[in-house]
């Protein structure tokens, strides 16, 4: 049995929210496996972060500034991928934001905003990439692969996290719905959801800071200590550990996996 060292050679991947955190780790991993990657985020193309990151990532990566909540931005992103690569085998719907607070204190604007990014963003990505991915998937064992980033918060509820719970739960079942749809129509696209536990990213840090500001704890480190204590593996996850799962779902190795949930939480939801 021969196994190659780079297992995404010849593949094209799109990662939303790719400038930071889990998204960036996915981009880096896909590149290391030989793929060409287009990443999107909100930052302007000539922003310091975008220019530095793209210079570091090299020729196989390209950037498009696009808001996942806007349909015209997705149309632009797909057009760019088509023009540049003519195909797309992997889509990681990763961009996401959080929102916490007592349910009676949440504003309608806040609710709409998180729904538009975390839920509309995933729907629009799938809708606009499906035709291209269906075409590209014909040449690949197991077909193309859509990886939707949900959360453990899409599996269980949590105090003052209800809006985020709602968005991630929606991503979980939307993924199962399209997985069955594609499979039944013999459309060569698989779709699975990723359920990270607590990952050391800018999103987590910002969220913990907000809880500190609201008086839930004295400092962010106290909250980290609490999370670590409640996680059987006893630490936070690194973004690369989510990227390795996304890589597995992107590769031929997961060719029979569709409609499945990949939980990466150090045992948090097992207890």
């Amino acid at each position: 049995m021969e196994l190659s060292a780079q297992r995404l050679k010849g593949r094209v991947a799109f990662v939303s929210g790719g400038l930071r955190g889990i998204g960036l780790a996915c981009v880096e991993r896909f590149l290391a496996e030989g793929a060409e990657v287009v990443l999107s985020d909100l930052d302007a193309p000539d922003s310091a972060l975008a220019t530095e990151t793209m210079a570091r990532l090299g020729q196989a990566a390209s950037y498009v500034s696009a808001n996942v909540a806007k349909e015209e931005d997705w149309e632009r992103a797909v057009a760019l991928v088509k023009e540049r690569h003519g195909k797309c085998h992997v889509l990681v719907n990763n961009a996401g934001v959080d929102l916490t607070g007592a349910v009676e204190s949440l504003s309608m604007e806040g609710w709409r905003r998180i729904m538009s990014i975390n839920v509309d963003g995933v729907f629009l990505g799938v809708k606009h990439f499906t035709p291209l991915m269906a075409e590209s998937g014909k040449d690949v064992r197991g077909g193309s692969s859509i990886i939707n980033v949900s959360s453990i918060m899409g599996l269980v509820g949590m105090n003052e996290v209800s809006a985020y719970n709602a968005t991630k739960g929606a991503v979980r079942l939307f993924t199962k719905g399209i997985a069955i749809e594609f499979a039944q129509k013999q459309t060569p696209i698989r779709a699975n959801s990723l359920h990270p536990g607590f990952v050391e990213t800018p999103l987590l840090k910002a969220g913990f800071q907000r809880w500190v500001d609201q008086g839930f704890a004295e400092k962010p480190d106290d909250l980290v200590a609490g999370v670590v204590a409640s996680t059987p593996i006893g630490r936070l996850a690194q973004p690369s550990e989510l990227a390795s799962a996304a890589f597995f779902l992107a590769s031929e190795d997961s060719s029979y996996m569709t409609g499945a949930e990949l939980v990466i939480d150090g045992g948090w939801t097992a207890q």
């Binding site: 390795s244 799962a245 996996m257 990466i264 150090g266 097992a270």
Partner: peptide, 30 residues
Amino acid sequence: GLVAYLASDEAAFVSGAELAIDGATTAGMM
């Protein structure tokens, strides 16, 4: 392929999980 992934250090934060590998059989109704 799934066994190899879980066996490797790639899955270092995956524990206590149930991984369906069934071509969407249990994802819902057809």
